[in-house]
Amino acid sequence: MSSAQTLLRRAQFLPLLLGGLYGVVLLLATVPWVQRELTYLHWIRFPFFPKYDAPHAYGLAPFKTRNFAISTPDGETLGAWHVLPNSYYMKQAPFPPQSDLSEDVFANAFGARPTVLYFHGNAATRAAPHRVRTYAALSSVLDLNVVAVDYRGFADSSGEPSEEGLKVDARAAYDWIAKQVKAAGKGVPEKQIILMGHSLGTGVASALTGLLADDRIVPKALVLITPFSSIPDLLSSFYLFGVIPLLSPLGHFPSIQNFFKSLISVRFNSVEALSRTLAPTLIVHTKADKVVPHSHSAAIFESLVAPNGTEAGIPKPFVLDYKGWGTLRISNPRGRQVIWWEGDFGGHDEVGWAEGTMDLIADIAKLNIPSDGPSYISL
Rank of each mutant, 00 (worst) to 15 (best):
Ser3Cys: 00
Ala4Lys: 10
Ala11Tyr: 02
Gln12Pro: 00
Phe13His: 07
Leu14Gly: 02
Leu16Phe: 14
Leu17Lys: 00
Gly19Ser: 06
Gly23Ser: 12
Gly23Leu: 13
Leu26Cys: 07
Leu26Lys: 06
Ala29Gly: 15
Thr30Gln: 13
Val31Thr: 05
Val34Leu: 09
Gln35His: 05
Thr39Gly: 01
Thr39Val: 14
His42Gly: 15
His42Ile: 00
Tyr52Phe: 15
Pro55Asn: 05
Pro55Leu: 09
Pro55Trp: 09
His56Leu: 00
Gly59Pro: 00
Leu60Val: 07
Leu60Gln: 06
Phe63His: 14
Phe68Trp: 14
Ala69Cys: 00
Thr72Val: 06
Asp74Gly: 03
Glu76Met: 09
Val83Glu: 02
Asn86Lys: 12
Ser87Cys: 01
Tyr89Asn: 04
Pro96Asp: 06
Pro96Leu: 12
Ser99Lys: 15
Asp100Gln: 13
Val116Ala: 07
Val116Trp: 04
Val116Glu: 05
Gly121His: 04
Arg126Val: 12
Pro129Ser: 13
Val132Glu: 01
Arg133Glu: 12
Arg133Ser: 13
Ala136Arg: 13
Ala137Leu: 06
Val141Ala: 14
Asn145Pro: 04
Val146Tyr: 11
Val149Gly: 04
Tyr151Asn: 10
Tyr151Lys: 10
Tyr151Trp: 11
Ser157Asn: 04
Ser157Trp: 01
Ser158Asn: 09
Ser158Arg: 04
Pro161Cys: 08
Pro161Asn: 05
Ser162Ile: 07
Glu163Asp: 07
Glu163Gln: 15
Glu163Ala: 12
Asp169His: 07
Ala170Val: 05
Asp175Gln: 05
Ala178His: 03
Gln180Asn: 09
Lys182Glu: 15
Ala184Arg: 04
Ala184Glu: 10
Gly187Arg: 10
Gly187Asp: 08
Pro189Val: 04
Ile193Thr: 11
His198Gly: 06
Gly201Lys: 09
Gly203His: 08
Thr209Gln: 04
Thr209Gly: 03
Gly210Arg: 07
Arg216Val: 03
Ile217Lys: 15
Val218Tyr: 01
Leu222Asp: 08
Val223Ile: 15
Leu224Ala: 06
Phe228Val: 08
Phe228Arg: 10
Leu235Gly: 04
Ser236Cys: 15
Ser236Glu: 15
Ser237Leu: 11
Phe238Pro: 06
Leu240His: 09
Leu240Trp: 14
Val243Lys: 13
Pro245Arg: 03
Pro245Asp: 08
Leu247Pro: 01
Leu247Asn: 02
Leu250Ile: 09
Gly251Leu: 07
Ser255Gln: 13
Val266Trp: 01
Phe268Ile: 02
Asn269Cys: 07
Ala273Met: 11
Ala273Glu: 13
Leu278Asn: 12
Thr281Asp: 05
Thr286Val: 08
Lys287Trp: 01
Ala288Cys: 00
Val291Ala: 09
Val291Ile: 15
Val292Gly: 02
Val292Gln: 06
His294Asp: 07
Ala299Thr: 13
Ile300Gln: 00
Glu302Lys: 15
Val305Ile: 11
Thr310Glu: 10
Ala312Arg: 13
Gly313Asn: 10
Ile314Met: 00
Leu320Gln: 14
Tyr322Ala: 06
Trp325Val: 14
Arg329Tyr: 09
Arg336Asp: 00
Val338Arg: 05
Ile339Ser: 02
Ile339Pro: 01
Gly343Arg: 12
Asp344Gln: 12
Gly346Tyr: 04
Gly347His: 06
Asp349Pro: 01
Ala354Glu: 14
Leu360Glu: 03
Lys366Phe: 05
Leu367Pro: 10
Ser375Gly: 11
